[in-house]
Design a protein around this nucleic acid. Structure first.
Length: 395
DNA sequence: TCTGGGGTCCTAGGACCC
DNA sequence: TCTGGGGTCCTAGGACCC
């Protein structure tokens, strides 16, 4: 009866800001801006704040100028993930085929709901969004269409707090007029390249030869015209089968610095947190990357691969130590430091030269972890001990 | 205006192997 | 003397997403 797939894309509006307004009712109707670090950017802005031109990814300093009366908040990620969990729980009551693509966004396959709910899919989608709105008190938008790409683009048109159903036959009359930049995955740079070749709208892209677009954008571009024409057959994936590929963390310093021992210290603190997460997840990483961003915003990274995945603090610190001299080559002020652990796999507890007794390093790390789990992460500072007597100077 | 932090995927060159 | 071709891994960088 329903041979076309029908996919609903759901996206919460100004999610972080909306949750804050639910948790703090006195903020309702006010310009709420999540992101309070003056060296950072806005994570979310309520619609009241957007009226002043504030939007996410905007520097906080700029947002303060545009909206001086706004309420600037530090993000409360624990609360956001709890609201996220509840939102997806509601979605799964309507269809088992739910794919979460981020904390506030996901796809629902409603192809089979006609029989299940004794109602047309549009009606089902509408009820689902209403239940989220009423139960959680936040605004959500939805796009219902024949493919993931069309559904997501429809959501963009439905915002704020709306639902747009694009019947498969009519979808591309609507979407074809949009600029190519509205296609998910086509950002500023890609849009500029396409515009340079006269490809302005989604319809232009759909009419372009795959080989041409592939030559402009690389291999992934070859399929883009087909997807733009509505031939996007990616299924809704219920299982997030593939596990996490990397663990990373970065920190922007309070001010730019040439104090390289401070930078090393920050890198080791970050590594401590990441390796703790690896151990908690029972994982290891075989590649360690150190990233440095300079005051002029240029960035550079250096990495080392090990033979086997590890989660031992001492091994990761030793890698960082070697990377530091390679990454920091010129005497420019540094703005940001980051560490990434990738090549995730089952950890191999191979002891290094300094720890001949098998398993000792791991037991030491886990002992420290146990203390942290009881008394807080900062109750143990391995980085401090490691860095003692390791003063470092640029050659 | 002055640019976060957490991720994913892709590309391209070089090394190395068969 | 003139130089293959494929596969895989490593490294560095870049685009993009929320």
């Amino acid at each position: 009866m329903n041979c076309h797939p029908l996919i609903l894309h759901v996206d919460a509006d100004a999610f972080y800001a909306s949750v804050e307004q639910v948790l703090h009712p006195e903020l309702r109707g006010k310009a709420v801006i999540v992101g309070a670090n003056n060296r950072g950017v806005v994570s979310a802005a309520s619609y009241e704040a957007r009226r002043f031109g504030v939007h996410s990814a905007m520097p906080v300093a700029q947002a303060r100028r545009l909206c001086p009366h706004g309420v600037f908040l530090e993000p409360n990620f624990a609360a956001y993930s709890e609201y996220s969990r509840q939102m997806f729980e509601i979605m799964r009551r309507y269809s088992p085929a739910v794919e979460a693509t981020s904390v506030d966004e996901g796809y629902v396959d409603l192809s089979g709901t006609l029989r299940l709910h004794k109602a047309p899919p549009w009606e089902v989608a509408h009820r689902m969004l209403q239940e989220i709105r009423v139960t959680l008190g936040i605004n959500v938008s939805g796009g219902l269409a024949g493919s993931k790409m069309a559904a997501k683009m429809a959501t963009g048109l439905a915002k704020p707090n709306g639902l747009l159903y694009l019947e498969p036959e009519k979808a591309w009359m609507v979407l074809g007029r949009l600029p190519v930049g509205s296609i998910p995955g086509v950002g500023k740079k890609t849009e500029k390249i396409l515009r340079g070749h006269g490809i302005i709208t989604v319809a232009d892209l759909a009419a372009s030869p795959g080989r041409l677009v592939g030559s402009l954008l690389g291999q992934w571009g070859e399929k883009l015209p087909e997807s733009a024409a509505g031939h996007d057959y990616r299924p809704v994936r219920v299982e997030p089968v593939e596990s996490q590929k990397s663990y990373s963390k970065e920190r922007t310093l309070a001010e730019d610095t040439t104090d390289y021992n401070l930078i090393r210290h920050v890198a080791c603190e970050i590594a401590e947190k990441l390796s703790y997460r690896l151990r908690e997840d029972g994982k290891g990483a075989s590649t360690v990357t150190l990233k440095v961003r300079y005051a002029d915003f240029t960035q550079t990274s250096r990495s080392i691969s090990l033979r086997e995945p590890t989660n031992a603090n001492a091994v990761i610190f030793a890698c960082l130590d070697r990377l530091f001299g390679k990454a920091v080559t010129h005497r420019q002020r540094i703005r940001q430091v980051g560490v990434k652990l990738s090549g995730i796999g089952p950890p191999v507890y191979q002891e290094d030269l300094f720890e001949p007794r098998r398993g000792l390093a791991y037991r030491k790390d886990r002992l420290a972890d146990a203390i942290r789990n009881r008394f807080g992460f900062t109750s143990v500072r391995v980085a401090d001990c490691f860095l003692q007597g390791h003063r470092w100077q640029l050659k």
